[in-house]
Design a protein around this nucleic acid. Structure first.
Lengths: 303, 303
DNA sequence: ATTACATTTATACAGGCAGTATAATGGAAA
DNA sequence: TTTCCATTATACTGCCTGTATAAATGTAAT
């Protein structure tokens, strides 16, 4: 049963928060969740995979919520970025995922280490891409450095601000403090031309990025064509038909052309497609959506 | 024998660098250094203490070399600070201590974790105190934040710069990059008055700081008085006597009054005392020096 | 040279860990 | 009822740190 599995995940998460990952033995988890060893290894191939399962469930929700904050907003608005950071910190505060990651990052489990590494890179890439939104293409050469600095500042300052429990500043203050710093930094380095790392590097660091993209784009193209065909059949009214086709084409282009497809846009448009033009044969829409998600996942490196 | 012990330390260090701390078993160390288990536990009470022994030997040398760079220099000179940072990075590069620390920081061994924690705090305090030298008392309220930001930036940027092996910037470029950033930051936050953490906090974070200082200062006073008495006896020439006494008093005050005694000054003066005024009974000078070192160690928290 | 002491070795052991293997048990669908 | 699958209990492998101990070796003093 799936709820049993989820119960194990929740129990383990609690224990990890209490005692730490390494210090929590599988026996502890068995005792805590009232299952037997056999069942545990039926659910998860290893302790490391259990951790990944915990992380994944949070990360997916977080990524969605983070993207939703962008809906209808100006991507260049720093305040929106700050809201996103607040969200991150809120989730991390209650789930203690960042603290656990710190611990797991250096565990014996090589697979787990690789996973964590990837997570960190993805978070750098996210900040980098948001900085690109905020500061614009002209500042691009300096934004990987800036993203790294920003995360370094945030991590450290947060850590010690957390240590100073009794008189610590609220999280939002730390966020704004670091944002104020980074805005100046970006302008400085752009002016002086100081660069440490070329932003191109980020893609080489994240494995599988864009390597299987070509084939999945091909699949997407197939399903797009099929969907358009079905649309032409389903919508006799020429006006509706044109609009629907335009919609489909836009989505397709957003995914294949943009280096960072706006997920919230795509979701909204897909919804329109499903509700407004319900006469289109469902199977084609579903197939289309499936391929879209596959591509998006690949862009996000399906962590 | 001590060289045997040192050999174990060196072997273990090599293995830790190759395979990591956790992945290196004590059996590996035994095989590598050709000793038996009994001898190992005769040398070190635990694997964690072995790690601490490795770290200590490097750290002590590093601290000395770092202080020596200050001799005869302007403490406010940023270039000197940069030289010190270069030294740090050079040592860390060959010994991989920072990487090992990252790993050990989250091990199961609570004592070890505490030790690492302390190391990190000491390094923050060091940067903070150097910032105080460089930026002056007027900027003091903002310098703990700045020290934390600086270390955060350096750590992160270095990490990823190291990752980009083939085309990575030299360390000195990273240091200068971060220094340029922090100079601007200090001025910014001083102007806008933004503060996250009160510098007073740093002393509360580092345990045992100044708690046993009183008694050791008392001991120092005793040996100072004894030395001055011996000096009076040993130096008939009134001029020499006055100079020697002034010297002793200066050292005593530097240690008891200054919150951060200048070690290079003290060392130099002690040397003068030993060579120029050799007629003073050796035992008193030695006792004096011993007490001085004890006090200094306590200030540095005898890691 | 012999005695006395400290260090070192070899080896067995305790207790804990992750993960495997397997036979017995339970419940649900066919 | 039988078949099938998830679950349980339990024992096991092989690894780890750290302890215990008796025998061997070296070393310094008598």
């Amino acid at each position: 049963m799936n709820s049993r599995r989820q119960n194990v995940i929740d129990t383990a998460h609690k224990l990890f928060i209490e005692k730490g990952y390494q210090a929590t033995s599988i026996q502890d988890i068995l005792d805590g969740s009232g299952i037997s060893k056999g069942t545990f290894y039926n659910y998860f191939p290893s302790k490391g995979e259990l951790f990944i399962a915990i992380f994944r469930s949070y990360h997916k929700k977080l990524r969605q919520a983070r993207e939703e904050l962008l809906i209808g907003q100006d991507l260049a608005d720093i305040e929106i970025f700050i809201k996103q950071l607040e969200l991150h910190m809120m989730v991390n505060k209650q789930s203690k995922l960042l603290i656990l990651i710190e611990e797991v990052r250096v565990s014996n489990d090589d697979e787990l280490k690789q996973f964590i590494n990837r997570i960190q890179l993805l978070s750098i890439r996210w900040v980098y891409s948001r900085f690109l939104d905020i500061f614009g293409e002209t500042k691009k050469p300096y934004l990987l450095d800036s993203a790294i600095l920003f995360l370094g500042m945030m991590t450290h300052l947060n850590h010690f601000n957390y240590k100073a429990k009794t008189i610590s500043s609220p999280e939002i203050k730390v966020i704004r403090y670091c944002m104020n710093r980074i805005v100046h930094i970006v302008n400085e380095v752009a002016e002086s031309g100081e660069q440490i790392l070329d932003p191109e590097l980020i893609d080489t660091w994240i494995p599988n990025f864009r390597c299987n993209l070509h084939t999945s784009h091909n699949d997407l193209l197939q399903s797009t064509l099929a969907l358009k065909k079905a649309t032409n059949k389903a919508l006799p009214c020429s006006e509706d038909r044109t609009k629907a086709i335009e919609l489909i084409d836009f989505i397709h282009e957003e995914i294949t052309q943009s280096s960072k497809p706006r997920q919230f846009l795509i979701e909204s448009l897909l919804n329109t497609l499903k509700t407004q033009y319900a006469t289109i044969a469902q199977q084609y829409v579903e197939n289309f959506e499936e391929n879209i998600n596959f591509c998006l996942n690949q862009l996000e490196n399906e962590i």
